[in-house]
Design a protein around this nucleic acid. Structure first.
Lengths: 73, 73
DNA sequence: GACTAATGGGGTAATTCGGGTG
DNA sequence: AGTGTCCGAATTACCCCATTAG
């Protein structure tokens, strides 16, 4: 492999994840506690979530999934 | 902190969609099970619906097909 | 150090799920 | 085939306040 120097991994705050799932930030916290979401804790104890994982979960289970069947609007 | 993530579409809760259609939330669930509505499940199993799709269906005429934003892969 | 906004933790209602029935 | 209601169980939403983030 290569460079294990710096991985700029986009992290999301609970409010961001909650907005994407249309749920309460507290609910996202419960998911993290339940182990359904990978939570990265700050030094103060707050949680941060990986944007890549959140997007994957939002799409259901397929990262390489996209469709371009645009109809009329 | 300020919003660096705008990859989320507006979602609606079953109660919201049910109120818009004047039906029971259970009926909305049946529509989702029948494939007439795109349902996005939360990590807890609850369903969320796309606000854009619901609006399109409310308008009546068009099919259940709407444009999907293809992210940057 | 002080400030505003958000988060964590706990606890309690409200909603939703799933199946079965009218 | 489609919808409304019943039930039990699970999940989620909103209340409090102390701490953390920036």
């Amino acid at each position: 492999m290569a460079t294990r120097t710096q991985d700029a991994e986009p992290l999301l705050t609970p409010a961001e994840v909650a907005a994407m799932f249309r749920v309460d930030p507290k609910t996202v916290t419960r998911w993290a506690k339940a182990g359904k979401l990978t939570s990265i804790r700050t030094l103060g104890g707050h949680r941060r979530y990986r944007e890549s994982e959140v997007r994957t979960l939002l799409n259901g289970q397929g990262p390489a999934m996209e469709r371009v069947e645009v109809g009329e609007l």
